[in-house]
Every structure is written in C-alpha cells, then in structure tokens.
Design a protein around this nucleic acid. Structure first.
Length: 113
DNA sequence: CGTTGGGCTCACC
DNA sequence: TGGTGAGCCCAAC
C-alpha cells in the first residue's frame, strides 16, 4: 500500500509554484508569513525550501514576495539586491525590526494562513 | 530518469 | 543568541 502523505489536491491542475503564489497573494499589507507556514498550508510540512525556491523564481508583480520570511522572523540572507529591497518594503508597510533584524511573528504574522 | 541545489527548518549543542 | 548538520520537496538540468 503506498501512502503518499497529505496531499491536498492529488490532481492539481496548477503547479505547486502556482499554488504558492496564489496563497502568498492573499497575505495582506503589513503582515508576513514564513516559508514553512506556506508549505504546511499547501500540504508539505517540510517543503519550506521549495517555497523559497518558488519565491525565487517568482516574476509575478502581484505576488508580495517580500512578505515571506524565515521561521526566525528574519529576511533570509542572499547575495542579491532583493534582500535589502525586502527590508525596505516591509518597513514601508509599518513592520518593525528588532535590533537583531528580526520581525515579531506573533505580532506581524498573518493569522489567517 | 538520476542529480542538483535553493530566499528552509528543526534539533542540538 | 548563534552555529552546525542532517532532512526535505520539487523544478531544472
């Protein structure tokens, strides 16, 4: 018997990436979610890295990629310029960063995910 | 059709 | 608070 684990949509017409984008699009201004939360919401409890890669590949301007941070409440470090852009965008939305560069997920985390 | 690697996470020091 | 190290998933090659 093969057990494939929890798959929300065995016959998803859209790719996983598209489902990631659809979910992230719902994150409201001034709120953030973590890669792991998005992954779990889509039925992949351990697919956080895949979500990260999906965001990396995202070219849809309607997807607020900057509202996705890591489980520590920090912007995932990467050698590209969008690292700083993410910080700027979040601050513009009113999100506060601790001196260590962390976001209070209890306060700014999107509760509806 | 096997490998690779990425905006990750979690469990431990 | 910070650093490792080992899993994990999926699209690209």
């Amino acid at each position: 018997m093969k057990k494939l684990g929890s798959r929300p949509h065995p016959s998803a017409s859209h790719s996983l990436f598209q489902r990631v984008y659809a979910l992230v699009r719902r994150v409201p201004r001034g709120r953030v979610v973590t890669y792991g939360e998005v992954a779990r919401a889509l039925g992949m409890p351990r697919g956080a890295r895949t979500v990260g890669w999906a965001m990396h590949a995202c070219q849809d301007a309607n997807v607020p990629w900057h509202r996705v941070v890591n489980a520590q409440g920090k912007i995932s470090p990467r050698p590209t310029a969008c690292f700083q852009e993410q910080h700027v965008r979040l601050k513009e939305e009113g999100i506060r960063f601790s001196r260590a560069g962390r976001i209070d997920l209890a306060k700014y985390g999107w509760k509806r995910i």
